[in-house]
Every structure is written in C-alpha cells, then in structure tokens.
Amino acid sequence: MIRFELNGQTVTTEDSPDTPLLWVVRDTFKLKGSKYGCGAGLCGACTMHVDGESTRTCILPVGSVEGKSITTIEGLRQDGELHPVQQAWISHSVPQCGYCQSGQIMTAAALLEHNPDPTPDDVEAALAGNLCRCGCYPRIKAAVLAAVDATDAMEGTS
C-alpha cells in the first residue's frame, strides 16, 4: 500500500508500485484533468506538482511518491478561486483542443511559484517541454506574463 497526499487529502492505493502516478491519479482516483500524451516524458501533458516541483507523472512510479504531496490541475484552485494562471488562460482564450492545457498550466504555476517575475525567455525555457499540437504557444506565453502582472497588481494592493 502506498500513501501520499493528493490535492491536500491523504490517500492510499493498492496499485503496484511501478504504476506511473498519472494512471493512479486518473484511473484509481478518477481525476481526469491530467492527460496521457506520450507516456515517455516527452510532452508534458501529464504534469503535476510533486512537493511543489512540476513533474512528468507518466514515467514516475507511484512507489516513489510515498509520503509526498501531489497537486493536480483539480487541486490548483486556492480557496475556491481559480489560480491566476487559470484566470489568465481564460481571459486570453488560450485553449484550442485543450488537451495539453492542464500540463501547460501546472508547469506555468510551478514556474511562478519559483520565479515570481519571469522574463519572456524564462517563460519559454520553462514551458519548452510542454508540447501543444494546436500551436497555442503565443497565447500561452502572453497568458503567463499576464498572470505575473495580475499577481503583481494583487500584491501591490494588499
């Protein structure tokens, strides 16, 4: 049995320890927001936060997250409010097919956690591992930078 924290709740699973975290979260815990795109750590569709670090979970055995804290797109809201990155995604009409977007958003949110004031180049570097077949890159970049501004503005007023 493996125990870890999933979006703030302690959970346990009987899935075999080599099962990638992605499939445990999707199929055992029925949180479908994280996606399967390549199964090989190449596209970023499966990105979650593992102890705050953006991580490819299609190649991460669930046995290795024992005791760790996992956040998925479903757990990104803070006090019921959408994360500033999500708000920026909506206001920029970023998604097209949308399939990559959970991964993009999780990577962007982790970036802002570590680097609250990224340059456009920082954004490109941080998101270079998240593929978008629909080609939403210009909007993704604009939305991340807008989320930075929105966060700055909020902090400025508080």
């Binding site: 999707r26 479908k32 479903e74 909506i90 206001s91 998604p95």
Partner: peptide, 21 residues
Amino acid sequence: VPRLDAAEKSTGEAVYGIDFD
C-alpha cells in the same frame, strides 16, 4: 466573443474520449 470552452479547458473539467469511464 470569449471562447465558450476556455474555462472547462483551463480547469481540467473538459471531457475527452480518453476520460470517459
């Protein structure tokens, strides 16, 4: 007009074939 599907595709709620159980 803002995309009607932007919100559910930014929260992980949009359902694709692979998500249906």
